[in-house]
Design a protein around this nucleic acid. Structure first.
Lengths: 165, 165
DNA sequence: CTTAACTGATTGTATTTTGCAACTGGTTGT
DNA sequence: ACAACCAGTTGCAAAATACAATCAGTTAAG
């Protein structure tokens, strides 16, 4: 996974880390679905990743410094996967992808609502959500703001659409 | 290429179109390298794509509506590939990827300069460059601004770094 | 006119990656 | 003691990829 490097182009190098059909979905589930354990990532995703692929991607992302793994004190076998700062900063890429997909592809209503809010919120909202991720995944304290956080707004909107069905 | 659709998530759907190691590199070369013919895309990229893979990706991108193909009047066999509006709007994704790669990965100096400028220029510069792409690929006239365009600035900076070596 | 170089691809084959299901060794709750 | 749960691993078939050779039509030079 390291001896590739087809070129020193930043876009190419980024693609060599997350340029496959699964890595960014794993990151997405960690960010928006707050999946932190292997089983959660394996079973609670809409796409149904295989366990061997998931294991492989988690290894690759660990090696690339995008996520970390810690033991879960509540269960000797469980591991807790967390985003690093480098991982948190993948959010703008995901947000742009979500916006593009929302605009041009047959997105389902319940899964598109987050994309719409992220697009409307713009980079300011992304920054707020990234701060929230830093708190959740890196333990970085942050100043509480009034009203619901970016993550809470996304989650609330999602549940609202689900409830209407 | 259409019967997939693992889920209606916008990020997933986007990944099903451009979520492989080559598609976005082809788009990158069309945007930043102004490659418009098969041969140019095949031989003038740093990564060295295979001809069968390139043919396959061009088909997929055509089918997805990201690019179009026209006959070149100067040569009966040549085709000219152009970005659609949908393709032009992939730029922010590429820009974010370039920024992330530039920050965290071992980018070469000559290939990183564009990423730096794109990052410093921000969404405003992206919009300017996208307008330029609309003119080049879609024939949309645009008002000339004073001074070098975004694309010219990127190109000049790249050549400047090359010249220094 | 002949011919060499160039055009956008296609074909064949070896290698690598992926998808799927079953399975492993261990932990936890009842 | 036992079933459910945990994070993965293994084996195998299918698909995608890489690489080189090839193809037929086009163009430009001699």
């Amino acid at each position: 996974m390291a001896d590739t490097k087809r070129s020193g182009c930043p876009i190419n190098l980024t693609l060599e880390v997350v340029g496959d059909k699964w890595s960014l979905l794993v990151i997405r589930d960690m960010m928006f679905g707050n999946r932190r354990h292997f089983r959660e990532l394996l079973t609670k995703s809409d796409e149904g990743i295989s366990s061997n692929i998931l294991a492989d991607r988690l290894k690759t992302l660990l090696g690339a410094g995008v996520i970390t793994r810690d033991d879960d004190p509540s269960h000797k076998q469980k591991g807790i996967y967390s985003l690093t700062e480098q991982g948190v900063e993948l959010l703008p890429i995901l947000a742009q992808m979500a916006g593009w997909g929302y605009k041009y592809l047959p997105v389902s209503e319940e899964l598109g609502i987050r994309a719409r809010l992220l697009k409307e919120g713009g980079p300011k909202m992304w920054a707020e959500f990234m701060d929230e991720l830093r708190e959740t995944h890196l333990g970085v304290k942050r100043r509480k703001k009034a009203g619901p956080s970016a993550g809470e707004r996304l989650q609330a909107a999602y549940e609202c659409v689900i409830a209407k069905k």
